[in-house]
Amino acid sequence: MNDNNLVNDMNETEMIERYIYEVIKRVPQKQRKEIKLELAELIEDMKEEGTTEEILMKLGNPAEFAKRYRDENNYVIGPDYYDDYVWIAKIGALAVAISAIVSAVVRGLTEAEGLKDFIKVFIGEGIGVSVSGAVGFLGMLTIIFVLMERLKIKVDIKPDKEWTPSQLPAVPEKKAMLSRGESIVAIIFYMVLMGMFLFVPEIFGAFETTDTGIKSISCVFNLEQWSSIVPFFVLILVIGMFDEIVKIIYGQYCKAVMYSSIVCNAISVVLFFILFKCMDIWNSSFADELLIQAGKKEYSKGDMLRYWNTDRFDEFLLGFIVLASCLEVASYVYHTYKYGRKDK
Protein backbone atom coordinates (compact mmCIF):
# COMPACT_ATOMS: atom_id res chain seq x y z
CA MET A 1 0.00 0.00 0.00
CA ASN A 2 2.70 2.43 1.05
CA ASP A 3 4.87 1.41 -1.82
CA ASN A 4 2.02 1.87 -4.18
CA ASN A 5 1.39 5.39 -2.93
CA LEU A 6 5.01 6.24 -3.29
CA VAL A 7 5.02 5.07 -6.87
CA ASN A 8 1.89 7.09 -7.58
CA ASP A 9 3.44 10.16 -6.02
CA MET A 10 6.52 9.76 -8.12
CA ASN A 11 4.41 9.40 -11.20
CA GLU A 12 2.40 12.48 -10.41
CA THR A 13 5.44 14.60 -9.72
CA GLU A 14 7.01 13.40 -12.87
CA MET A 15 3.83 14.00 -14.84
CA ILE A 16 3.76 17.59 -13.62
CA GLU A 17 7.43 18.05 -14.40
CA ARG A 18 6.91 16.71 -17.87
CA TYR A 19 3.91 18.95 -18.45
CA ILE A 20 5.74 22.07 -17.30
CA TYR A 21 8.74 21.16 -19.43
CA GLU A 22 6.50 20.73 -22.49
CA VAL A 23 5.18 24.25 -21.97
CA ILE A 24 8.41 26.09 -21.19
CA LYS A 25 10.43 24.53 -23.97
CA ARG A 26 8.12 26.37 -26.33
CA VAL A 27 8.40 29.84 -24.81
CA PRO A 28 11.29 32.30 -25.14
CA GLN A 29 14.37 31.38 -23.12
CA LYS A 30 14.32 34.35 -20.79
CA GLN A 31 10.72 33.72 -19.69
CA ARG A 32 11.19 30.04 -18.91
CA LYS A 33 12.30 30.26 -15.31
CA GLU A 34 9.44 32.51 -14.31
CA ILE A 35 6.77 30.55 -16.18
CA LYS A 36 8.06 27.32 -14.67
CA LEU A 37 7.51 28.74 -11.18
CA GLU A 38 4.11 30.09 -12.11
CA LEU A 39 2.93 26.79 -13.48
CA ALA A 40 4.22 24.88 -10.47
CA GLU A 41 2.29 27.29 -8.26
CA LEU A 42 -0.86 26.96 -10.36
CA ILE A 43 -0.87 23.17 -10.46
CA GLU A 44 -0.19 23.01 -6.73
CA ASP A 45 -3.12 25.37 -6.10
CA MET A 46 -5.41 23.32 -8.31
CA LYS A 47 -4.75 20.11 -6.42
CA GLU A 48 -8.06 20.27 -4.57
CA GLU A 49 -9.88 20.11 -7.90
CA GLY A 50 -8.94 16.53 -8.62
CA THR A 51 -6.16 14.18 -9.53
CA THR A 52 -3.07 15.40 -11.30
CA GLU A 53 -4.28 13.82 -14.48
CA GLU A 54 -7.59 15.67 -14.28
CA ILE A 55 -5.84 18.95 -13.57
CA LEU A 56 -3.51 18.55 -16.52
CA MET A 57 -6.44 17.61 -18.73
CA LYS A 58 -8.11 20.81 -17.66
CA LEU A 59 -5.03 22.86 -18.45
CA GLY A 60 -5.05 21.33 -21.89
CA ASN A 61 -2.40 20.62 -24.48
CA PRO A 62 0.89 22.15 -23.32
CA ALA A 63 1.69 23.27 -26.86
CA GLU A 64 -1.56 25.24 -26.93
CA PHE A 65 -0.77 26.69 -23.51
CA ALA A 66 2.69 27.75 -24.64
CA LYS A 67 1.24 29.37 -27.75
CA ARG A 68 -0.79 31.68 -25.57
CA TYR A 69 2.33 32.70 -23.69
CA ARG A 70 4.10 33.74 -26.84
CA ASP A 71 3.56 37.01 -28.61
CA GLU A 72 1.04 36.62 -31.31
CA ASN A 73 2.88 37.54 -34.48
CA ASN A 74 5.68 35.05 -34.34
CA TYR A 75 5.51 34.11 -37.98
CA VAL A 76 8.39 34.01 -40.40
CA ILE A 77 6.46 35.39 -43.34
CA GLY A 78 3.45 37.46 -42.50
CA PRO A 79 0.11 37.71 -44.28
CA ASP A 80 1.24 40.82 -46.18
CA TYR A 81 3.85 38.83 -48.04
CA TYR A 82 2.42 35.37 -48.04
CA ASP A 83 0.74 35.57 -51.46
CA ASP A 84 3.84 37.02 -53.09
CA TYR A 85 5.95 34.37 -51.43
CA VAL A 86 3.85 31.50 -52.76
CA TRP A 87 3.65 33.09 -56.16
CA ILE A 88 7.40 33.62 -56.49
CA ALA A 89 8.01 30.11 -55.15
CA LYS A 90 6.03 28.84 -58.13
CA ILE A 91 8.17 30.89 -60.53
CA GLY A 92 11.15 29.43 -58.72
CA ALA A 93 9.90 25.92 -59.42
CA LEU A 94 9.77 26.77 -63.13
CA ALA A 95 13.24 28.33 -63.00
CA VAL A 96 14.65 25.29 -61.19
CA ALA A 97 13.10 22.99 -63.77
CA ILE A 98 14.61 24.92 -66.68
CA SER A 99 17.93 25.08 -64.88
CA ALA A 100 17.87 21.33 -64.26
CA ILE A 101 17.06 20.55 -67.89
CA VAL A 102 19.83 22.83 -69.18
CA SER A 103 22.40 21.29 -66.82
CA ALA A 104 21.23 17.78 -67.63
CA VAL A 105 21.44 18.38 -71.38
CA VAL A 106 24.92 19.85 -71.09
CA ARG A 107 26.14 17.01 -68.88
CA GLY A 108 24.48 14.46 -71.09
CA LEU A 109 26.00 15.88 -74.26
CA THR A 110 29.49 16.37 -72.92
CA GLU A 111 29.94 13.31 -70.75
CA ALA A 112 27.71 10.55 -71.98
CA GLU A 113 28.75 8.03 -74.55
CA GLY A 114 25.85 6.59 -76.44
CA LEU A 115 22.13 7.04 -76.01
CA LYS A 116 21.74 4.73 -73.01
CA ASP A 117 24.45 6.51 -71.13
CA PHE A 118 22.99 9.85 -72.14
CA ILE A 119 19.65 8.96 -70.57
CA LYS A 120 21.38 7.79 -67.42
CA VAL A 121 23.46 10.94 -67.06
CA PHE A 122 20.49 13.11 -68.07
CA ILE A 123 18.19 11.66 -65.43
CA GLY A 124 20.85 11.60 -62.72
CA GLU A 125 21.92 15.17 -63.31
CA GLY A 126 18.32 16.30 -63.73
CA ILE A 127 17.22 14.88 -60.40
CA GLY A 128 20.34 16.11 -58.63
CA VAL A 129 20.00 19.66 -59.88
CA SER A 130 16.24 19.71 -59.30
CA VAL A 131 16.57 18.69 -55.68
CA SER A 132 19.47 20.94 -54.75
CA GLY A 133 18.05 23.77 -56.86
CA ALA A 134 14.62 23.55 -55.24
CA VAL A 135 16.06 23.42 -51.73
CA GLY A 136 18.49 26.24 -52.50
CA PHE A 137 15.91 28.47 -54.11
CA LEU A 138 13.35 27.97 -51.38
CA GLY A 139 15.92 28.65 -48.70
CA MET A 140 17.10 31.78 -50.45
CA LEU A 141 13.58 32.99 -51.13
CA THR A 142 12.66 32.50 -47.50
CA ILE A 143 15.70 34.42 -46.31
CA ILE A 144 14.87 37.26 -48.70
CA PHE A 145 11.27 37.42 -47.48
CA VAL A 146 12.24 37.26 -43.85
CA LEU A 147 14.53 40.21 -44.55
CA MET A 148 11.68 42.00 -46.28
CA GLU A 149 9.37 41.27 -43.41
CA ARG A 150 11.80 42.78 -40.93
CA LEU A 151 12.70 45.73 -43.17
CA LYS A 152 9.07 46.46 -43.98
CA ILE A 153 8.32 46.74 -40.31
CA LYS A 154 10.99 49.40 -40.15
CA VAL A 155 10.07 51.13 -43.41
CA ASP A 156 6.30 51.14 -43.32
CA ILE A 157 5.35 51.61 -39.72
CA LYS A 158 5.92 55.18 -38.71
CA PRO A 159 3.89 55.71 -35.58
CA ASP A 160 4.84 59.37 -35.29
CA LYS A 161 3.06 60.20 -38.53
CA GLU A 162 -0.68 60.20 -38.35
CA TRP A 163 -2.39 58.86 -41.40
CA THR A 164 -4.53 61.24 -43.42
CA PRO A 165 -6.27 60.67 -46.74
CA SER A 166 -3.88 63.16 -48.33
CA GLN A 167 -1.16 60.55 -47.96
CA LEU A 168 -2.99 58.22 -50.30
CA PRO A 169 -0.66 57.53 -53.20
CA ALA A 170 -1.96 58.18 -56.69
CA VAL A 171 -3.14 55.11 -58.54
CA PRO A 172 -0.03 54.45 -60.59
CA GLU A 173 -0.14 55.46 -64.20
CA LYS A 174 1.05 52.93 -66.67
CA LYS A 175 4.52 54.40 -66.97
CA ALA A 176 5.04 54.14 -63.22
CA MET A 177 4.34 50.43 -63.12
CA LEU A 178 7.16 47.93 -63.07
CA SER A 179 6.70 44.99 -65.37
CA ARG A 180 6.18 41.77 -63.47
CA GLY A 181 6.99 39.83 -66.62
CA GLU A 182 10.44 41.39 -66.89
CA SER A 183 11.21 40.53 -63.29
CA ILE A 184 10.03 36.95 -63.75
CA VAL A 185 12.18 36.52 -66.84
CA ALA A 186 15.10 38.02 -64.93
CA ILE A 187 14.62 35.67 -61.96
CA ILE A 188 14.43 32.64 -64.22
CA PHE A 189 17.50 33.84 -66.11
CA TYR A 190 19.43 34.31 -62.86
CA MET A 191 18.37 30.87 -61.66
CA VAL A 192 19.44 29.19 -64.87
CA LEU A 193 22.72 31.07 -64.76
CA MET A 194 23.21 30.06 -61.13
CA GLY A 195 22.53 26.44 -62.04
CA MET A 196 25.20 26.65 -64.70
CA PHE A 197 27.75 28.28 -62.40
CA LEU A 198 27.10 25.70 -59.72
CA PHE A 199 26.63 22.51 -61.68
CA VAL A 200 28.08 22.87 -65.18
CA PRO A 201 30.64 25.71 -65.18
CA GLU A 202 32.34 24.11 -68.20
CA ILE A 203 29.42 25.37 -70.30
CA PHE A 204 31.17 28.74 -70.32
CA GLY A 205 33.82 27.76 -72.76
CA ALA A 206 34.58 26.20 -76.08
CA PHE A 207 33.30 22.87 -77.35
CA GLU A 208 34.02 20.62 -80.24
CA THR A 209 31.87 17.94 -81.76
CA THR A 210 33.26 14.45 -81.79
CA ASP A 211 31.90 11.10 -82.93
CA THR A 212 30.44 10.36 -79.51
CA GLY A 213 28.97 13.79 -78.91
CA ILE A 214 30.22 17.12 -77.79
CA LYS A 215 33.42 17.58 -75.88
CA SER A 216 34.47 20.52 -73.77
CA ILE A 217 37.81 21.87 -74.92
CA SER A 218 38.42 24.64 -72.51
CA CYS A 219 36.54 26.71 -69.98
CA VAL A 220 36.94 30.46 -69.68
CA PHE A 221 36.99 30.21 -65.90
CA ASN A 222 39.68 28.97 -63.60
CA LEU A 223 38.05 25.71 -62.59
CA GLU A 224 40.88 24.78 -60.24
CA GLN A 225 39.86 27.50 -57.85
CA TRP A 226 36.21 27.32 -58.77
CA SER A 227 35.02 26.50 -55.25
CA SER A 228 36.27 29.84 -53.95
CA ILE A 229 35.09 31.76 -57.02
CA VAL A 230 31.58 30.40 -57.37
CA PRO A 231 30.22 31.83 -54.07
CA PHE A 232 30.82 35.31 -55.44
CA PHE A 233 28.81 34.61 -58.56
CA VAL A 234 26.05 33.00 -56.50
CA LEU A 235 25.97 35.98 -54.16
CA ILE A 236 25.80 38.42 -57.06
CA LEU A 237 22.91 36.47 -58.56
CA VAL A 238 21.10 36.23 -55.21
CA ILE A 239 21.41 39.98 -54.81
CA GLY A 240 20.06 40.44 -58.33
CA MET A 241 17.12 38.19 -57.48
CA PHE A 242 16.50 40.08 -54.27
CA ASP A 243 16.25 43.27 -56.31
CA GLU A 244 13.78 41.66 -58.72
CA ILE A 245 11.64 40.33 -55.88
CA VAL A 246 11.51 43.79 -54.34
CA LYS A 247 10.29 45.09 -57.69
CA ILE A 248 7.59 42.44 -57.92
CA ILE A 249 6.37 43.17 -54.42
CA TYR A 250 6.16 46.94 -54.81
CA GLY A 251 5.05 46.73 -58.42
CA GLN A 252 5.85 50.33 -59.24
CA TYR A 253 8.59 52.92 -59.01
CA CYS A 254 8.96 54.05 -55.45
CA LYS A 255 11.73 54.83 -53.01
CA ALA A 256 11.91 51.29 -51.67
CA VAL A 257 12.62 49.98 -55.17
CA MET A 258 15.10 52.77 -55.79
CA TYR A 259 17.04 52.14 -52.58
CA SER A 260 17.02 48.42 -53.25
CA SER A 261 18.43 49.06 -56.72
CA ILE A 262 21.15 51.37 -55.39
CA VAL A 263 22.21 49.01 -52.61
CA CYS A 264 22.07 45.85 -54.75
CA ASN A 265 24.03 47.41 -57.60
CA ALA A 266 26.62 48.82 -55.20
CA ILE A 267 27.17 45.46 -53.52
CA SER A 268 27.35 43.67 -56.86
CA VAL A 269 29.94 46.11 -58.18
CA VAL A 270 32.05 45.62 -55.04
CA LEU A 271 31.81 41.84 -55.45
CA PHE A 272 32.81 42.09 -59.10
CA PHE A 273 35.79 44.22 -58.11
CA ILE A 274 36.90 41.55 -55.65
CA LEU A 275 36.38 38.87 -58.28
CA PHE A 276 38.36 40.63 -60.97
CA LYS A 277 41.04 42.29 -58.90
CA CYS A 278 41.72 39.84 -56.09
CA MET A 279 40.98 36.44 -57.55
CA ASP A 280 42.20 34.44 -60.48
CA ILE A 281 38.86 33.83 -62.05
CA TRP A 282 40.03 33.25 -65.61
CA ASN A 283 41.57 30.16 -67.07
CA SER A 284 44.87 31.65 -68.15
CA SER A 285 45.45 29.03 -70.82
CA PHE A 286 42.00 29.37 -72.38
CA ALA A 287 43.24 31.44 -75.31
CA ASP A 288 46.21 29.17 -75.89
CA GLU A 289 44.07 26.09 -75.82
CA LEU A 290 41.80 27.60 -78.42
CA LEU A 291 44.80 28.48 -80.51
CA ILE A 292 46.06 24.93 -80.38
CA GLN A 293 42.65 23.69 -81.28
CA ALA A 294 42.55 25.95 -84.27
CA GLY A 295 45.96 24.68 -85.30
CA LYS A 296 47.57 28.09 -85.24
CA LYS A 297 50.76 29.17 -83.51
CA GLU A 298 50.23 32.89 -83.09
CA TYR A 299 47.36 35.27 -82.75
CA SER A 300 46.56 37.25 -85.83
CA LYS A 301 46.81 40.98 -85.49
CA GLY A 302 43.28 42.01 -84.70
CA ASP A 303 42.51 38.93 -82.67
CA MET A 304 40.60 39.78 -79.50
CA LEU A 305 42.02 36.69 -77.84
CA ARG A 306 45.32 38.48 -77.44
CA TYR A 307 43.78 40.41 -74.62
CA TRP A 308 42.73 37.27 -72.75
CA ASN A 309 43.41 37.37 -69.02
CA THR A 310 45.21 40.72 -69.17
CA ASP A 311 44.57 43.63 -66.82
CA ARG A 312 43.14 45.52 -69.72
CA PHE A 313 40.59 42.81 -70.30
CA ASP A 314 39.51 42.86 -66.63
CA GLU A 315 39.35 46.63 -66.61
CA PHE A 316 37.25 46.68 -69.72
CA LEU A 317 34.76 44.23 -68.18
CA LEU A 318 34.69 46.07 -64.86
CA GLY A 319 34.18 49.36 -66.63
CA PHE A 320 31.29 47.84 -68.50
CA ILE A 321 29.74 46.48 -65.30
CA VAL A 322 30.14 49.79 -63.46
CA LEU A 323 28.66 51.67 -66.40
CA ALA A 324 25.70 49.31 -66.66
CA SER A 325 25.07 49.52 -62.91
CA CYS A 326 25.26 53.30 -62.95
CA LEU A 327 22.85 53.48 -65.87
CA GLU A 328 20.40 51.18 -64.12
CA VAL A 329 20.54 53.10 -60.87
CA ALA A 330 20.25 56.42 -62.74
CA SER A 331 17.20 55.11 -64.55
CA TYR A 332 15.55 54.09 -61.28
CA VAL A 333 16.33 57.39 -59.60
CA TYR A 334 14.98 59.29 -62.60
CA HIS A 335 11.80 57.24 -62.86
CA THR A 336 11.21 57.29 -59.13
CA TYR A 337 11.27 61.07 -59.05
CA LYS A 338 9.28 61.40 -62.22
CA TYR A 339 6.52 58.85 -61.65
CA GLY A 340 7.12 57.31 -58.29
CA ARG A 341 5.02 57.38 -55.20
CA LYS A 342 5.99 60.42 -53.23
CA ASP A 343 4.47 59.30 -50.01
CA LYS A 344 7.57 57.87 -48.48
Binding site: E38, L39, E41, L42, D45
Partner: peptide, 27 residues
Protein backbone atom coordinates in the same frame (compact mmCIF):
# COMPACT_ATOMS: atom_id res chain seq x y z
CA UNK B 1 -4.02 38.42 -5.66
CA UNK B 2 -2.32 35.32 -6.91
CA UNK B 3 -3.48 33.60 -10.07
CA UNK B 4 -5.53 30.78 -8.67
CA UNK B 5 -7.30 33.01 -6.16
CA UNK B 6 -8.23 35.26 -9.06
CA UNK B 7 -9.68 32.34 -11.00
CA UNK B 8 -11.85 31.35 -8.05
CA UNK B 9 -12.78 34.93 -7.43
CA UNK B 10 -14.04 35.29 -10.98
CA UNK B 11 -15.74 31.91 -10.89
CA UNK B 12 -17.68 32.92 -7.77
CA UNK B 13 -19.07 35.81 -9.75
CA UNK B 14 -20.04 33.62 -12.66
CA UNK B 15 -17.11 34.38 -14.96
CA UNK B 16 -15.31 31.27 -16.13
CA UNK B 17 -11.76 31.68 -17.25
CA UNK B 18 -9.32 28.93 -18.09
CA UNK B 19 -5.95 28.95 -16.38
CA UNK B 20 -4.25 28.61 -19.73
CA UNK B 21 -5.90 31.86 -20.77
CA UNK B 22 -5.48 33.75 -17.54
CA UNK B 23 -1.81 33.13 -16.82
CA UNK B 24 -0.55 34.32 -20.18
CA UNK B 25 -2.96 37.26 -19.98
CA UNK B 26 -1.57 38.31 -16.60
CA UNK B 27 1.93 38.29 -18.01
Amino acid sequence: KYGYALIQNLEDKGIDIDANTLYPLLR
